[in-house]
């Protein structure tokens, strides 16, 4: 029954499409009923501020996952970026932020080259790049955490301050959302990415410069990770080689929970926003239930595996390795 099966297919696609948003609404309601404080504007603003860094990391890796790849270096990149800011902000001022993001873009370029030209699977290329970046952060920071003084913090008001009662970090997050959405939905790069993710041989055969798109996606991923590191350095007034160490799992979980399939081709920045908010609300819910912050990884790990199992497109991978 082709008719019947296509109908079923449509329903599943719909379900996948709306499930993340429905989950978010239900979670917000549940946590709100449990702790009415949660629904007060100040708490919600706090939630949005706390989500911003996670969202920026997740946005970067969304571009890579859309292509069917993965970036396991983002937490090391963000940490290294915070170290760069902490070490250079006193001399360079605002330029230090550019330096950090520039380093990120360069690192992403190198990961992309290693992946595309040397034909190394992305998870191993970025795992290795993560090691190199972690090592660089350890050496540069002399294996310690660098705290920023008042003079240095004055350069970071674009992260720590607020406009009209809205924390600046939320505004930065919204700008990232707009830029990333335009890149993903309204440019040739975005369309080509979706095409490559949906079927690489077809995209290649229709003349898409696959390698170039891929390298650009890794540059975006590492660049956004570096930006997240810059913001983290501002929010925590410090830089350290392990500053973002716990961010890898939540970031990838946010993308996948939002409904972007790790097999590529299906996904959007909006979904990543919904996914990031889900992760944040789950985290707050667990804090209300006083779950140990490290033990929260049990939940995130399970959620990740479950979300992958639901969203993955098995027709694309006949053999699951």
């Amino acid at each position: 029954m082709p008719m019947n099966s296509s109908l079923k297919r449509l329903n599943i696609d719909r379900l996948r499409h709306w499930l993340p948003l429905a989950t978010l609404i239900i979670l917000v309601t549940v946590v709100g009923v449990m702790e009415p404080v949660f629904l007060q504007p100040s708490t919600l603003l706090q939630l949005a501020s706390d989500t911003a860094v996670l969202f920026i990391l997740a946005t970067g890796v969304t571009f890579v996952i859309m292509l069917g790849g993965i970036d396991l270096s983002l937490q090391s990149m963000a940490s290294f970026s915070s170290v760069i800011v902490a070490l250079t902000i006193a001399q360079l001022g605002y330029v230090s932020f550019g330096l950090a993001v520039g380093t990120g873009i360069l690192a992403g370029f190198l990961s992309g080259i290693a992946h595309v030209k040397l034909k190394i699977p992305s998870f191993i290329a970025t795992l290795a790049m993560g090691g190199v970046l972690f090592s660089a952060a350890l050496v540069a920071s002399k294996e310690r955490s660098i705290t920023l003084g008042d003079a240095e913090r004055s350069y970071q008001t674009w992260v720590t301050g607020s406009h009209f009662g809205i924390p600046n970090v939320i505004i930065v997050g919204l700008i990232v959302l707009i830029v990333a959405h335009v890149l993903q939905a309204h440019t040739r790069f975005g369309r080509y990415s979706a095409a490559i993710g949906a079927g690489e041989p077809a995209a290649y055969a229709s003349g898409v410069k696959v390698d170039r798109q891929k390298i650009f996606a890794y540059m975006l991923s590492a660049g956004f990770a570096a930006l997240a590191g810059v913001i983290l350095a501002g929010r925590l007034s410090s830089g350290s080689p392990t500053l973002a160490a716990e961010m890898l799992l939540p970031s990838i979980a946010a993308v996948v929970v939002g409904g972007t399939a790790i097999t590529g081709g299906v996904g959007s920045i909006w979904r990543t926003l919904v996914g990031s908010l889900i992760i944040s609300v789950v985290r707050i819910g667990m804090t209300f239930l006083s779950v140990n912050i490290f033990a929260q990884n049990i939940v995130f790990g399970s959620v990740l595996v479950l979300a992958v199992a639901v969203t993955i497109d098995r027709s694309k991978i006949p053999i699951v390795k």
Binding site: F294, N297, G301, V305, I312, V320
Partner: peptide, 20 residues
């Protein structure tokens, strides 16, 4: 049918989480 790198990425953090 979850690819091994995703499965084991999950259990990596679950394992450390339980230990914690």
């Amino acid at each position: 049918k979850v690819p091994s790198f995703m499965t084991t990425l999950g259990t990596w953090f679950i394992g450390v989480g339980i230990a914690n």
